[in-house]
């Protein structure tokens, strides 16, 4: 604990094989860390929490530059929908609707209403009974914050 993330990635992990734009750290519900934040983080709970991420179980998954982030977010919603036990509405239905909105924005001439999107994330975060539905908004919000330019075409209202 306390090891700089840069050391874990470059020295222990041997660096990247190809250009990477983000690290998804802490599992599917962990934070999505852009490359620009790597030097700000060390492997401890406080460092991640104070930067708006989540250490979780500390797994590190690289998202390559060539991989569309919208596709990655779609995958996260699909994962949640698949894993959802179905007990509460926000997680059971919200995860499916999130996946569908992202699919529709990619395959049709459709932009997701930003207010609806924020409402969906808030509903998942506050209304879910457990950490599955409650946790999925974190990486999505990280993505919306750090990759706003890449995701812009898929959302309306700026």
């Amino acid at each position: 604990m306390g090891t700089p993330l840069r050391v874990v990635v470059d020295e222990m992990g041997g660096g990247f094989r190809e250009p990477v734009k983000a690290l998804h750290i802490g599992g599917p519900l962990g934070g999505l860390v852009p490359m620009s934040k790597i030097d700000d983080l060390s492997i401890d709970f406080e460092s991640f929490a104070s930067n708006g991420f989540l250490l979780g179980h500390a797994s590190i998954l690289s998202v390559p530059e060539r991989f569309p982030l919208v596709k990655y977010l779609e995958h996260l919603f699909a994962f949640t929908a698949h894993e959802s036990c179905g007990k509460c509405f926000p997680c059971r239905i919200g995860s499916v609707r999130g996946k569908e909105l992202l699919q529709k924005a990619q395959s049709e001439n459709y932009q997701i209403d930003r207010e609806l999107w924020n409402d969906l994330l808030e509903t998942l975060e506050k209304g879910s009974l457990c950490a599955l539905g409650g946790g999925i908004p974190l990486p999505v919000k990280n993505a919306m914050q750090y990759f706003s330019e890449e995701l812009k075409p898929y959302f309306s209202r700026g």
Binding site: F89, I93, G94, R97, D119, L120, E122, T123, G127
Partner: peptide, 14 residues
């Protein structure tokens, strides 16, 4: 009130 409305809206999508 907003959260409750948003949850019921999700229910109505199905």
């Amino acid at each position: 009130q907003k959260l409750r409305k948003n949850i019921v809206e999700l229910v109505l999508t199905d």
